[in-house]
């Protein structure tokens, strides 16, 4: 191995980022080359000095207190937000409660209509011949699938999807 190659890969060697073969290759070169050995030692010393320097860098005395005050303010903010959320929910829920009988009436109307349709369909199927009944059944199935597909296509273009994401 040439010195140039060894020096280029020195950082990876020091950081243990080389595969076993490359590591062994550089290690073997370092044994025979004093110059590269010096660079390796310098890099290692640099690492140590770097770490020691950061470990010894002074921390502002009042910082801890500042952080604790900020955390306390955050706690107060969170509890205030909880109260605000509760009030909002109550405010939004009250009109909903007032409208509940009306909403139930609509749901009931839907149910009654659906049930009436179901009855008509059952009677018709019983009266009609088997082939026609099957035809109506299959057509209804495909129409339902098509309906679902159309609703999805409509929703895809609307803002509703963006909100749900």
């Amino acid at each position: 191995m040439e010195c140039q190659e060894c020096l280029e890969r020195m950082s990876e060697y020091i950081d243990g980022e080389l595969c076993n073969f490359e590591h062994a290759e550089i290690k073997a070169h370092l044994i025979s080359c004093q110059n590269c050995q010096n660079v390796a030692r310098e890099f290692q010393m640099l690492q140590e000095r770097f770490q020691r320097s950061l470990e010894n860098s002074p921390v502002p005395i009042e910082l801890e207190q500042r952080i604790l005050i900020a955390v306390e303010q955050e706690q107060q903010k969170v509890s205030k937000q909880s109260v605000f959320t509760l009030i909002t929910l109550v405010l939004l829920g009250s009109p909903l409660l007032l409208l509940l009988p009306f909403l139930l009436r609509i749901v009931h109307l839907f149910y009654a209509t659906g049930y009436a349709f179901w009855r008509v369909k059952t009677v018709l199927l019983m009266l009609l011949p088997t082939t026609t009944s099957w035809g109506i059944g299959v057509t209804s199935f495909f129409l339902s699938v098509f309906g679902i597909y159309m609703i999805r296509a409509l929703l895809r273009g609307s803002r509703l999807k963006e909100v749900s994401l």
Binding site: V59, P60, L63, I67
Partner: peptide, 26 residues
């Protein structure tokens, strides 16, 4: 603080960011 200072090299920014880090932790 030391990590933030090492990255930003600005004492006042390091103090602000340290505070922000603890708020995020909280």
């Amino acid at each position: 603080y030391r990590t933030v200072f090492a990255l930003l090299q600005d004492r006042s920014e390091a103090e602000d960011v340290s505070q922000e880090v603890f708020i995020k932790i909280y």
